[in-house]
């Protein structure tokens, strides 16, 4: 997903202590390659291969090299650099901005941003931020909970009892991430991370009660800002077609990743929170490599087929 310099600025201004030096009007520049480049080699005049679509980071190396050049050469090289249609320049260690950069920034419509951070630290922090910004994301319907470290997304038709089940789980000491609307993104490690919409975060709607604020009622332990998704639980009216063994689990696909999905039939009087809790525990067990349903099935098959041999 392509992003603009502005998104980086908005998300990272505080965290990366960014300050705009020039070209504030051009923050809308897009960042075609979500990465950083140290333009040291380009400054020596080598432009045959130059990653011009990335953030250009001016650190100690670049400054020391520029210093070694004559004023004329310095101006020429900087101009050549700007001519490559770069999206943005970032100057680390709060170095004094080289002469002429402000003018070039206006001329070539390039924002120049400064940070007091040491280059290495900046690059590390910025990589994490860029990856987060560029991750594929989506908004999905469902209530997100964290149950014993397992991220559980509760889905189901309106009125089936998602929020009520979540409330029971909160009362059992588990944490709410989001109610009804969940934001998701895919990480480079191939996981789905879920969090809540900024505005409605930590609020729930309970039929008959209206809107409640979960941490005010249950304390800060009852909420969690974001969590990785491990299992999806669909609450459905009973159909008689439910899985009875769990040997062949279903999956759903979010952002091209497959997530285990369990369908739970909701009957009146059934303690859904209890079952969701067990489903989460069972999922945890599976992730540890212990699949109870499959192991029992393998055991039975092995006994049954041994029996066949015995009978000749």
């Amino acid at each position: 997903m392509a992003i603009t310099v502005k998104e980086l600025w908005e998300e990272g201004a505080e965290r990366l202590s960014l300050r705009i030096i020039a070209g504030e009007k051009y923050l809308e520049n897009s960042l075609p390659e979500i990465a950083m480049n140290r333009p040291g080699l380009a400054l020596t005049g080598f432009f045959q291969y130059f990653a011009n679509q990335r953030l250009q980071i001016f650190g100690l190396a670049e400054f020391t090299y520029l210093k070694s050049l004559s004023v004329q050469k310095k101006e020429q090289r900087l101009r050549q650099l700007f001519e490559q249609k770069i999206p943005c320049i970032i100057i680390t260690r709060n170095r004094r901005v080289p002469k002429g950069i402000t003018e070039l920034a206006e001329e070539f419509k390039v924002p120049v941003i400064q940070t007091p951070m040491v280059t290495m630290n900046f690059v590390n922090e910025c990589t994490v931020l860029l990856e987060k910004l560029a991750a594929p994301r989506k908004r999905i319907q469902g209530t997100m909970m964290e149950v014993m470290g397992i991220g559980v997304l509760l889905r189901g038709d309106p009125g089936i009892g998602k929020s009520e089940t979540a409330l029971s789980l909160i009362e059992r000491g588990y944490s709410l991430v989001s109610d009804d609307v969940t934001e998701i993104r895919r990480t480079s490690r191939g996981r789905i991370v879920c969090w809540a919409n900024e505005v409605t975060r930590y609020h729930m709607e309970i039929r008959g009660l209206g809107i409640i604020h979960v941490p005010s009622l249950f304390g800060v332990a009852s909420i969690r800002r974001e969590t990785e998704l491990d299992v999806v639980i669909d609450l459905k009216k009973p159909t008689g077609e439910e899985d009875r063994t769990g040997v062949h689990p279903e999956t759903v696909t979010f952002l091209e990743l497959e997530i285990p999905c369990i369908t739970l039939p909701v009957r009146s009087g059934r303690d859904m929170a209890n079952i969701v809790e067990v489903a989460a525990l069972n999922q945890k067990l599976k992730e540890l490599g212990h699949d109870a349903a499959k192991e029992l099935d393998d055991k039975i098959i092995s006994r049954l087929t041994k029996g066949r041999v015995r009978r000749g």
Partner: peptide, 19 residues
């Protein structure tokens, strides 16, 4: 069948009978 009544056939029987 080849493996006898293991989990999958058992589930089919239970589903059929449950109706």
């Amino acid at each position: 069948n080849e493996y006898g009544i293991h989990a999958r056939p058992a589930a089919l029987l239970v589903k059929a009978a449950g109706k």
